[in-house]
Design a protein around this nucleic acid. Structure first.
Lengths: 206, 206
DNA sequence: ACACTTATATACCAGCCGTTATGGAAATCG
DNA sequence: CGATTTCCATAACGGCTGGTATATAAGTGT
């Protein structure tokens, strides 16, 4: 259990490590984010993290454990706009925050393009099936939260009464996933902005 | 240049090959379709195709050439619903045919789930960059055709005059890509049907 | 100064990757 | 028939994969 959060200050005996775990993990995340789980080789990771393989294995366990910790970091730092979006007062506000948040994240110049979840869950070999399952589970959790939010929105009158809240959740998820795919395919921010604006123009209710 | 299309009938001298090129290619397509370009190993391919590696190399060149031929087959047989969709008389008809066509294709029990283009273009290692570019080019061509169709639809009054046809093309593309991602993630056909119906309910114009 | 503990660096492991050389089998041509 | 051409099967190639054993360096507490 690591207590320290910054660069140094080892509390116990033994040779202190020469790198910052958090920074190394952030570097690993960027590699996974741009190349996917299987596309990221240990050589890619160690080079980006600035450490050697034994150091990586000592600090993180193995590739799979490293990915899971990187995924935790991703959700914590990068994708918490999702949670924030659900706090919007209206369903339209939720959709706005979700889409513009995704837009910012997918097109931020210092980030890889696209969504880590989409990149990882699509097209992975048999060996990475458990990784894929873990990612899908998190996506399902996020979608469930969105669904509950839209069910509430329907009760509050944000939608016409005959609206399919589940369909709308799937719809919003799909547009975000498509935005991720197009960002990965090289779409410009301006193009994705038009996609978001078009989608919001079609969004039902006030 | 192979002339024969069926099982046998070698026109020239030498030992005739013992497998059907078209069937082998179809099998290879299914492997690429379910595992992606890099996720499909030569062992996977040869096993599914029922041939050995030297036979594969003699008949198709190498892995990249095999993929390109499989991609040709995919576009020719599976994804020509796109071309057909653009022939619909109205923009709404285009959207309907496109979405239901994608729905049928992504959920057909005898096909892998999802879109080969999405699977291949997302998250590939550096070595497959040219493959990715080839796939993206075809996607860009398809999107360009859709864009032209919607520009015409706007002139014909299918949309309100202030409509962003380019945004709508990106929108429709995004919903289809999202549908592919969700199909690959294990969504049921019923779920995707609701996604399509919801999207069409939001689609502008008559 | 010493033993002890931990991190780093080098080198290595078996296994899979895409690809190909080699040797024999099966067909047509003369 | 023999000669030729093409295909199939085995096995191997160098290179890369994720993962590790070994040896050395750099700190700790006493």
């Amino acid at each position: 259990m690591e207590i320290e959060t910054a660069t140094v200050a080892a509390p116990h005996k033994g040779r202190p490590r020469e790198f910052c775990v958090d920074m190394a993990l952030a570097a690993a995340l960027r590699v996974f984010w741009s190349k996917g789980y299987e596309g990221a080789s240990m050589a890619d990771l160690t080079e980006a993290m600035g450490i050697t393989k034994p150091s990586l294995y000592a600090a993180f366990g193995n590739k799979e454990a490293l990915f899971n910790k990187a995924l935790d970091l991703y959700e914590r730092e990068k994708a918490d706009y999702m949670r924030a979006a659900l706090d919007a007062p209206t369903a339209r506000g939720v959709a706005e925050r979700l889409m513009y948040g995704a837009l910012d994240m997918y097109t931020c110049p210092e980030n890889p393009n696209g969504c880590l979840g989409v990149i990882t869950s699509v097209a992975c070999g048999a060996e990475a099936e458990c990784i894929r399952q873990a990612v899908l589970e998190r996506g399902a959790t996020a979608k469930r939260a969105m669904l509950e939010r839209f069910a509430r929105a329907k009760e509050e009158g944000d939608f016409p009464p005959d609206t399919d809240a589940e369909g709308l959740a799937a719809f919003l998820t799909a547009v975000n996933q498509g935005m991720s795919v197009q960002a990965g395919a090289g779409a410009t921010r301006a193009e994705l902005e038009r996609l978001v604006e078009t989608s919001l123009k079609l969004w039902p209710g006030r």
